[in-house]
Nucleic acid binder design. Structure first.
Length: 444
DNA sequence: TCTGGGGTCCTAGGACCC
DNA sequence: TCTGGGGTCCTAGGACCC
């Protein structure tokens, strides 16, 4: 049986999260900014229509914001993560086989799907066929109908608008999703399986909209005379292999309706954990740099323990601004005798790293820690000469994590400092409506 | 003045070995 | 006119994704 993938993708996810709790934002230009209120990371359609690009620095569009009275929000990741899991839970009710691909996207396996199997399960009563679709010559396929049902249920249960693309490969499902979002005629759902117009459709898809083709490859392809997804689907495989490697070859096959990617049920174990931030204001002193590194090491430790992992290697890096002359970047990598998830050890290592790479009279703009060689905690090879009381440290970390999970005033290590003048700023963050008792939605 | 954060995979080239 | 061949492992860098 042929495979059938559906890609469900939330529309303008961060903006939509803000709108769910603030309906006044509907039909208005809204943007969400990155850490430090630096760049635009999400835009409502109205903001896109004002030509605000993804990743544009906020200071460059100050006038535009004023002129069009654009609503601006700092990122509120706690809220977004919680909304994400609500959407994913709802989606999972429509297909048990689901791969959560990112915070706002999931692939579903719809192969072997039977319309009858889904009736009477409580989901169908939320489905109301789109009025315009009723008397159309082109009858909606059962898959399209199922897509609409998903879409309406998610909207009703979570408030989140999603678009759904359906196809026989993940790459084509991505394209279908893109089209479902872009053209109102599809009403948010597009099915490319058995489409008689596939060639015509691919001919209208620009290269850079294809999953796996970034800006570099698109330029290279254009130079070689390619214009559309259709062109790429007919490329010479040997030439693609030579120029773009195996990833390029897979993309071509996927465009030809030959699946190269499966649904990933058990996502492979994490390879690395990174915690890094730009500073609100640049740092010159080694003490402050150490504090920042301690905060990130501590956060990295939490992530490690969340996944029941221990790290064998830590890399610490510092950098000045990317945009100045004489940019300074340096990093130091060190191995632990025994893989660890103990915050005290991680902070000590981060501090050592900073001492190695610190340079005087530098305006540091960013630092971070990267944990590598991650191993499951229960499979850690103990070093014969290890004097640390592992069991005691494990219990301590467990207690700390438990307290921090409940409390609004988390436990912090002394090395993290109290000053935090360098700390990133969130000037316009919305409330954490769904996860913090102090920030519940107020109904007036 | 102000330019995000966190990931993955692949490849080429160097070091080293027999 | 001349250079061995072939493995493996590691690393840095490139490219991509959301």
């Amino acid at each position: 049986m042929n495979k059938i993938f559906a890609l469900a993708d939330c529309n303008n996810f961060y903006v939509s999260c803000e709108r769910v709790f603030n309906p006044k934002l509907e039909h208005r230009p809204v943007i969400v900014l990155s850490n430090n209120d630096g760049c635009v990371v999400a835009r409502s359609n109205e903001a896109k229509a004002l030509n605000i690009g993804m990743g544009v620095p906020a200071f460059e569009i100050k006038d535009l914001i004023k002129k069009h009275n654009i609503e601006v929000f700092s990122s509120n990741y706690t809220l977004y993560a919680d909304m994400s899991s609500r959407v994913m839970d709802t989606l999972a009710a429509f297909a048990p086989d689901i791969e959560i691909y990112s915070i706002d996207e999931a692939f579903l396996n719809l192969a072997g799907w039977h319309p009858q199997a889904q009736l009477g399960d409580g989901l169908s009563r939320d489905y109301h066929p789109h009025p315009d679709k009723n008397n159309q010559d082109e009858a909606a396929t059962p898959l399209t109908e199922y897509g609409h049902r998903m879409r309406q249920t998610i909207k009703k249960w979570t408030g989140m608008p999603v678009s759904i693309g359906i196809a026989e490969t993940k790459t084509l499902a991505k394209i279908a999703n893109h089209l479902a979002k872009r053209s109102a005629e599809f009403d948010g759902v597009m099915d490319l399986t058995n489409s008689p117009n596939l060639e015509q459709i691919l001919a209208a898809v620009p290269l850079e909209k294809i999953w796996g083709i970034g800006i570099r490859s698109a330029i290279k392809l254009k130079r070689a005379g390619f214009k559309s997804a259709l062109d790429l689907s007919k490329a010479n495989i040997n030439w693609i292999k030579a120029k773009f490697g195996v990833m390029g070859v897979r993309t071509v096959y996927e465009l030809q309706n030959t699946p190269c990617y499966e649904l990933e049920h058990n996502p492979p174990a994490r390879q690395s954990i990174v915690v890094s931030r730009m500073f609100g204001t640049p740092i010159e002193s080694i003490e402050q740099l150490k504090e920042a590194a301690a905060v990130y090491a501590s956060r990295a430790g939490e992530k490690l323990r969340q996944h029941n992992l221990a790290a064998g290697i830590m890399s610490v890096f510092v950098t000045t601004s990317r945009f100045i002359k004489n940019k300074y970047f340096n990093s130091h990598t060190l191995a632990f005798d025994t893989p660890t998830s103990d915050t005290t050890e991680l902070i000590r290592a981060a501090s050592t790293g900073i001492e190695r790479i610190y340079r005087e009279k530098c305006q540091f703009k960013k630092c971070g820690v990267i944990l590598l060689c991650l191993v499951p905690e229960n499979r850690v090879q103990h070093n014969l000469f290890d004097r640390t009381d592992r069991e005691k440290s494990r219990r301590l970390m467990k207690v700390v994590d438990a307290i921090n999970a409940r409390s609004g005033a988390p436990i912090r290590w002394a090395a993290e400092g109290l000053d935090r003048s360098w700390h990133v700023e969130f000037k316009r963050r919305s409330s954490r409506y769904t996860t913090d008792w102090n920030e519940l939605l107020k109904v007036k």
